[in-house]
Design a protein around this nucleic acid. Structure first.
Lengths: 211, 211
DNA sequence: GGGCTGATGTTGACAGCGAACACATTGGAG
DNA sequence: CTCCAATGTGTTCGCTGTCAACATCAGCCC
């Protein structure tokens, strides 16, 4: 794990990932460069290519790591609750919190940055495991409340609500339109979402189970 | 508007925008380059900088155009209906259809590509007008049905549902995880969303107005 | 121990990019 | 007609992703 010789690094892939995570959190994905990463690791400009055959591959690894982290956060959030509504709120809150705490990472995972995931098996696997956490709970809701609608459709609608909340919060607050001279009417809706995430999610839940 | 001399183009900004719109639709935003645009317009590589001081500025102009187009599409969709539910469905469908028909454009408008909009007044203005269309309808819904919840919050929840539907459909189907070996359970939810957008939106609406 | 092999890191090169500079050309206002 | 501001050109800089040829090293088999 640690540096072994002056020539061989020991764990270059790991250090590159660390620097990359830090960089996209601080500076964004656009400005991420393999060369800068190499410099940060004190290594030649083409050394990273031994571990990540292309920049896209590095981004895929970052996204994979993100899905793993999100899945764990959802897992621990769910662990504390028995009640179904509480579990849904915990899941949704964890989802939204992850997005707000790691905007660029979330963007990398759910935005169209990487295009087709299927080039990277590890990524597909991590994403699937993560999504399964989300939809399993939704199916549980559908089953428990014996809702009439198509279970898949209902799960989709719930997911859309949670994901849409995260996405709007991320892209439509600060930065984005928030810089307009005075608070602009449409943004009040997004602001309300952000100021009471819990309440908004509860509203979705209670509506859909037929309050 | 047309070419005037061999030296002065006549409407370089317009032609650049046309080529840019076509390019991002066909090849994506990542690969868009001012130089290639200049080549396509048969003009020197630094000519575009007279009209767009930076690449980000060109992207902002593209996003501005997109918000204008989306607003018009929502407008014409709304025009045909009197019933509130029908109007909501029309709005939501127009919103989702725009996203599906113009994925990279939508990504540019609602993703974190541009960062803070407030550097570009025209963009803020166009986005605000477009969002106003969306939230005005939502406030109408809240008012008409005399719903208890905070109007802004409810508007936010509705918007999150519509936007989340568009976003999931865009980023989580083809491409993305769809390439996995066999259809993966979580994706059934997204698939259900896509196969019956109208039904999903109706489900949201009826749930929230207290069906 | 000695030597081979595959993994890892280096050097140098290529083309493409955004951006900036001084300069050329032009149409239209006065 | 003249001059100016707008527009387009030529050239340069530093940066990037990617590649191929080369150097170095660790661990294994004998």
């Amino acid at each position: 794990m640690a540096a072994k010789s002056s020539y061989h690094h020991g764990d270059l892939a790991g250090e590159l990932m660390q620097h990359a995570v830090r960089h996209i959190a601080a500076e964004g994905t656009e400005s991420l460069s393999l060369r800068a990463l190499a410099r940060a690791a004190g290594v030649s400009q083409s050394a990273p290519y031994r571990h990540f055959p292309s920049k896209r591959c590095l981004l895929a690894a970052l996204a994979t790591e993100g899905f793993g982290r999100l899945e764990r956060q959802i897992g621990t959030a769910l662990a504390g609750h028995d009640d179904l509504e509480a579990r849904f709120l915990a899941m949704g809150t964890a989802y939204v919190q992850f997005a707000v705490a790691n905007p660029t990472h979330y963007h990398l995972m759910f935005g169209a940055v990487l295009g087709d995931f299927s080039d990277y098996d590890m990524l597909v696997e991590a994403a699937t495991r993560c999504f399964a956490r989300v939809t399993a709970l939704q199916e549980e809701i559908v089953a428990t409340h014996r809702l009439e609608a198509d279970p898949d459709q209902l799960a989709g609608v719930i997911w859309a609500g949670v994901h849409g909340t995260a996405s709007l919060l991320l892209n439509m607050t600060r930065p984005a339109v928030a810089g307009a001279r005075e608070p602009v009417p449409p943004m009040l809706a997004v602001q309300a979402l952000g100021e009471d995430v819990d309440g908004s999610l509860r509203l979705m839940y209670r509506s859909l189970i037929g309050g």
